[in-house]
Amino acid sequence: MVRLQTLRGYLLEEVLAWLLRSSGYRLLTEKDDAARAPWKVLEKRKHGLVVRGRGAWRQADTLGEFPYVPPFSLPIRLFAEAKFTHPKVGLPTVRNGHGIVHDLNENVVTTWGNGSGPHRPRARYHYSYAIFSTSGFTQDAQEFALAHQISLIDLSLPDFKVLCDLVRVAAKSVYDATRSMPPSQQPTVYEIRNYLRRHLLNLWDEPAADAPSVTDPLDTLAAGLRRRSSLGLVLAFPAAPFVLGLVSNDLYAFLSHAREQPTHLVRVRRIHRSVGHPLWRIEPREGPPYRLTFSLPEQVEAWILDQEEGSRSRTHWMARNLLSAITMYWVDENHTHTFQLRYSPEEFLEVSGRPRSFTSDFGETPDLF
């Protein structure tokens, strides 16, 4: 039987796939690969979807593809792994993610057909890996991720509390229900995930959990997510070897502003907290207000801030360079919007020269720049 904290992570992965769908993240199934063996890349096996690498077939529980292809690149596929644990995520998890994407990205371009006929090109993709954690990451995990471009996204922000609580309650109810069943009647993790995936993403796959004591908490989770539809998670792409997970307490306010001004100037604030490492906040320089918040793992932030001498100047360097242009994609009714948030150098010079006192929503004082 699956451990409770593992079940939490599995349910959180399905929830993240639902949240990220508007960023263009479309969860893949076996049906997305119409090729026949030996040219197939995706297959469905006993425990779910697998993807073909150079050395082995890899489990791909939450593998999604984006509709936009960067210039001079390949279609992008992203593994989203979630860890809902109390200890910080360590090096083995990050190293495993790197091993998977390295094997997949080194996959051979062609596959020989049957007999001695000519070889045929196989579809290729660029695979990336993102790890979401509710409790942060160890220092060695952060250093390894930074070196190998594995994205680490911290879900310990206050804005994620309601979301994490919904997953925590649902996982505990499902876990208790399965423990009370005879072993022969206990649904597998694959069946539990399929049921939630069906209700969140309308992806129908068999088999799926059918015991009311298991499915009722999943229905409650799905309903709770839909009631809080203003809570959004958006992937953003700065000029850096990682992605940002931006969260907003009112995503509609951001979208309304961004649709009218796809490229606009923003202010960036780094907020010190009495508990936990600093948060970063993005707000529009002009127009209707919105707020986007993100957090960087401590070691990643330290590496960035070490680019210049002096604490304040290093923070400014980060905003001027890595955060000077943040690109975001939003898919709405099969149309992909591109937004770009630009940090103005004039804003940097103007505000950094006039520091002011400011109390954030968390009752703490941010750096303004």
Rank of each mutant, 00 (worst) to 15 (best):
V2F: 01
R3N: 13
Q5Y: 01
G9M: 11
L12C: 04
E13A: 08
E13P: 09
E14F: 03
A17I: 04
W18K: 11
L28Q: 01
L28V: 04
E30L: 03
K31I: 04
K31A: 12
D33L: 06
A35H: 06
A37T: 11
A37P: 12
E43A: 13
K44I: 05
H47Y: 07
A56G: 14
W57D: 03
Q59I: 06
E65T: 13
F66Q: 02
F66I: 09
P67V: 00
F72K: 10
L74A: 08
I76R: 14
I76E: 09
R77Y: 10
R77T: 06
L78F: 01
A82S: 11
K83V: 00
F84S: 03
H86V: 12
P87Q: 00
P87F: 01
V89E: 10
P92Y: 06
V94C: 14
I100D: 04
I100T: 06
L104Q: 08
T110W: 08
T111W: 07
G113S: 06
G113E: 07
G117R: 14
P118G: 11
P121F: 13
P121D: 15
A123D: 13
Y127K: 03
Y127C: 10
I131W: 07
T134W: 01
S135G: 05
F137T: 00
F137V: 02
A141T: 02
A145Q: 02
L146Q: 07
L146T: 05
H148C: 06
S151V: 02
D154I: 03
D154V: 05
V162G: 07
C164W: 01
V167D: 08
V169C: 11
V169K: 14
A170C: 09
A170I: 03
A171T: 00
Y175T: 07
S180C: 13
S180D: 13
P182H: 15
P182I: 14
V189G: 10
V189K: 09
Y190E: 15
R193H: 02
R197M: 00
H199D: 07
H199Q: 03
H199G: 02
V214M: 04
V214I: 12
D216C: 02
P217Y: 00
G224Y: 01
R228L: 01
R228N: 12
S229D: 11
G232D: 04
L235K: 01
F237C: 03
D250T: 05
D250F: 05
Y252F: 15
Y252C: 13
H257A: 15
A258F: 07
E260Q: 05
H264K: 10
V268E: 09
R270H: 12
S274K: 08
G276V: 06
L279P: 03
L279C: 01
E283W: 10
S295P: 07
S295F: 09
S295V: 04
L296Y: 02
P297D: 00
P297A: 01
I304D: 06
E309H: 13
E309D: 10
E309T: 15
G310E: 08
S311D: 15
H316N: 12
N321H: 15
S324G: 06
M328T: 06
E333S: 07
T336F: 09
T336P: 10
R342C: 11
R342M: 08
S344V: 04
P345G: 08
E347I: 08
S360L: 07
G363V: 03
F369Y: 12
